[in-house]
Simulated assay, not measured.
Amino acid sequence: MQLAGYQNRMPPFGAFERWFRLLALAARLVCRAAVEPGRVRSIAKHESTICGRLWSLHLPTRIFGLVSMTRDIAARRHHIILESLERLETISVEELARSLDVSRETIRRDLKALSAEGLLSVVHGGAIRAERSEASFASRRAVNRAGKELIANLAASMLGDGVTILLDSGTTTEAVVRALVRSDRKRLVVHTTSLENARLASRLPGARVFLIGGEFDRNEDATSGAEALRAIGRLSADFSFVSVGGVDAEGRLTDYTRAGAAIRSALLSNAEQGFLMADSSKFGLVLPSRIGGDATFAGLLLDRLPPDPIASNLTKNGVRLLVS
């Protein structure tokens, strides 16, 4: 791994060495004075010379400057570590120590400090990106309700009777199910990770509703984990509709957790036409885990076009934008 530019920004340490040697000499003399009182007189002979040399270097001022510069260097390392985790998701102490040209102990202290601020999670041998916690489902349901309903109506208009669909557990997806109930679609086959979506879909005339198995996520009121991924892998559908946690300035479609992103990516992969959905409250939101990966999808459903550079970067990334 290459963390370019760090060495070029490092200050020269040669000038500090003289100060440290003088400080060390002064400390040794003071310590000897404490433990060998008989030698105080000989130490005193050197006192004026040592103090004069320290004062001539303006050492008190330089010490404060050194502390400030040391903090600045640590801040730069912290910034580079966080930038690297944004790209790589996980990184080792060994890689960081080699790339930043510092000791492993220094990197471990850096990681501990960043972990205390909630900016990353320390694991054995390195660190991983910290996962941001998402608001409760009930509070998210109230955010931009009108925008989500516009998207839901667009999604429902794409579906005819008798099709098979895959749904995740997002609040926009819940709005899609409610729109389908209002539209009186018939004989739909619905596979979903969401308990609420399954309950709502059961109101559709002649519908067959399947709850995808897996570990229960209380915050999402839905299933997730390895079992859910295996279950999704055995499915095949005409359409899938998946909620997006955030759309950043680079046009990346993201989620709060790796587990959530994995479920949504799998739902996209196992449908003939997979659609992502993002209302305008998601624009500019930077989250740690990307949705999609190698999965192809038919488009991104929106309540309105996002501002540039988000819109231009989405288009550049090959994402088809469909506005309700």
Rank of each mutant, 00 (worst) to 15 (best):
Arg182His: 10
Ala228Ser: 12
Ala198Glu: 11
Arg203Asn: 09
Ala226Phe: 12
Gly170Ala: 13
Gly206Val: 14
Val209Glu: 11
Ile212Cys: 02
Leu253Thr: 09
Leu180Gln: 02
Asp217Asn: 11
Glu196Gly: 07
Ala175Asn: 05
Val244Ile: 12
Val242Lys: 13
Arg187Ser: 07
Ser224Leu: 04
Ala226Asp: 10
Leu200Ile: 04
Ser236Tyr: 08
Asp221Val: 11
Arg178His: 09
Glu215Lys: 03
Thr172Ala: 13
Asp248Gly: 03
Gly213His: 02
Glu215Ser: 08
Glu196Val: 13
Ser243Asp: 12
Arg230Asn: 07
Ser243Lys: 12
Ala222Tyr: 15
Gly170Phe: 12
Thr193Lys: 13
Val244Lys: 14
Ser240Ile: 03
Gly170Tyr: 06
Ile232Gly: 05
Ala179His: 01
Gly206Trp: 11
Thr254Val: 03
Arg178Lys: 13
Thr193Val: 15
Thr192Val: 11
Val181Ser: 00
Ser236Met: 08
Thr193His: 14
Val190Met: 10
Ala231Arg: 04
Glu227Asp: 07
Ala249Pro: 01
Ile232Pro: 00
Asp184Met: 12
Ala179Phe: 00
Lys186Asn: 07
Arg252Ile: 04
Ala201Lys: 06
Val247Lys: 01
Val176Asn: 00
Val209Arg: 08
Ala175Pro: 14
Glu227Lys: 01
Leu200Lys: 02
Ser243Trp: 06
Arg218Val: 14
Arg208Phe: 04
Ala237Gly: 06
Arg185Cys: 14
Val242His: 06
Gly170Lys: 13
Ala201Pro: 07
Gly246Ile: 11
Arg203Trp: 11
Ala231Pro: 00
Asp238Ser: 09
Gly225Met: 04
Asp184Leu: 15
Thr171Pro: 06
Ala226Cys: 06
Gly251Leu: 00
Thr173Phe: 09
Ala201Tyr: 04
Asn197Thr: 02
Ala198Ile: 02
Arg203Cys: 08
Val242Trp: 05
Arg230Phe: 10
Val181Met: 00
Arg199Phe: 15
Ser202Arg: 13
Gly213Val: 04
His191Trp: 14
Gly206His: 13
Asp248Ser: 03
Asn219Ser: 09
Leu204Pro: 01
Ala249Val: 01
Glu250Ile: 00
Ile232Lys: 14
Leu235Tyr: 10
Ile212Met: 04
Asp238Thr: 05
Arg182Asp: 15
Leu200Phe: 11
Ala231Gln: 07
Asp217Trp: 02
Leu235Gly: 07
Val244Thr: 15
Phe210Asp: 02
Ala198His: 11
Gly251Lys: 00
Gly170Ile: 12
Phe239Ser: 01
Gly233Cys: 09
Ala249Gln: 08
Asp184Ile: 10
Ala201Met: 12
Ala175His: 09
Leu195Val: 15
Ser194Val: 14
Ser202Asn: 13
Thr223Trp: 10
Arg230Ala: 03
Thr254Ala: 13
Leu204Lys: 07
Ile232His: 08
Glu174Gly: 09
Pro205His: 00
Thr173Lys: 14
Arg208Thr: 09
Ser224Cys: 14
Ala198Thr: 02
Arg203Thr: 10
Gly206Leu: 10
Ala237His: 10
Gly206Met: 09
Thr171Arg: 14
Thr223Asn: 00
Arg252Phe: 08
Glu196Cys: 05
Thr173Ile: 06
Ala237Ser: 12
Leu211Asn: 04
Val181Lys: 00
Thr254Phe: 08
Leu188Tyr: 04
